[in-house]
Simulated scan of single mutants.
Amino acid sequence: MRIRNVFFSPTGGSKKIADSFCARLRKELGFEVVHTDITPVKARGQSFDGEGILVFSFPVYGGRVPVQISDRDYDDALLECADILRSRGYRLAGSGAFVAEHSYAEYFV
């Protein structure tokens, strides 16, 4: 079994949290972790074998899933992501929201 760590992380915050979460899963379950960065445009559109555990991480902009991930406020971001993943055949065990530096943070200091 493997843990597939797929992340969209323009500022590195989502990646940092996903890496930490996957490291803990690896420690607890003993599974291999495979990292896939879908931040670059050329990396998007990949398909995966569906085996193991998928950890999919992304920032939330204005309460929504980034347009780069989907065609559509954190308010519904997890629900949107769940809908996208289910439509592609994934079975979801859970979701979570974590705090990281926002891409606009340096402009408000």
Rank of each mutant, 00 (worst) to 15 (best):
M1E: 05
M1H: 14
I3K: 13
N5F: 07
V6W: 08
V6N: 04
F7G: 07
S9F: 02
P10K: 13
P10L: 12
T11G: 12
T11W: 10
G12A: 13
G12K: 15
G13V: 14
S14D: 06
K15G: 05
K15Q: 08
K16A: 08
K16G: 11
K16I: 03
I17T: 15
A18D: 01
A23L: 13
A23P: 07
A23T: 04
R24C: 00
R24E: 00
L25M: 04
L25H: 02
K27L: 06
K27N: 04
K27V: 00
E28V: 02
E28H: 04
L29V: 04
L29P: 08
G30M: 03
G30F: 02
F31M: 01
E32W: 00
V33T: 02
V33P: 01
V33H: 00
V33C: 01
V34R: 09
T36M: 02
T36Y: 06
T36W: 09
T36S: 01
D37Q: 02
D37I: 05
I38M: 06
I38Y: 03
T39V: 04
K42T: 08
A43D: 03
A43K: 02
A43W: 10
A43R: 09
G45K: 02
S47R: 03
S47K: 07
F48K: 02
F48Q: 07
D49T: 10
G50V: 09
E51Y: 07
I53H: 06
L54Y: 02
V55F: 00
F56C: 09
S57C: 04
F58A: 00
F58L: 03
F58E: 07
P59L: 04
P59I: 05
Y61E: 11
Y61G: 14
G62L: 12
G62V: 13
G63M: 08
R64I: 09
V65Y: 15
V65K: 06
V65W: 10
V65C: 11
P66C: 14
V67Y: 09
V67M: 12
Q68N: 11
Q68C: 08
I69G: 11
S70C: 10
D71K: 09
R72Y: 13
D73T: 14
D73A: 15
Y74I: 13
Y74W: 15
Y74C: 15
D75R: 11
D75Y: 03
D76H: 06
L78G: 04
L79P: 01
E80T: 05
E80R: 12
E80C: 04
E80V: 07
E80Y: 09
C81D: 05
C81L: 06
A82M: 14
A82E: 09
D83Q: 14
D83S: 07
D83G: 10
D83I: 13
R86T: 14
S87W: 14
S87K: 11
G89Q: 07
G89E: 14
Y90I: 05
Y90W: 15
R91C: 13
L92F: 13
L92W: 15
A93R: 11
A93L: 13
G94E: 12
G94Q: 10
G94M: 15
S95C: 10
S95P: 08
S95Y: 14
A97V: 12
A97D: 13
A97C: 15
A97M: 14
F98I: 11
F98C: 07
A100P: 00
E101D: 10
Y104C: 12
A105D: 04
E106Q: 11
E106N: 03
Y107N: 09
F108I: 01
F108V: 01
F108M: 05
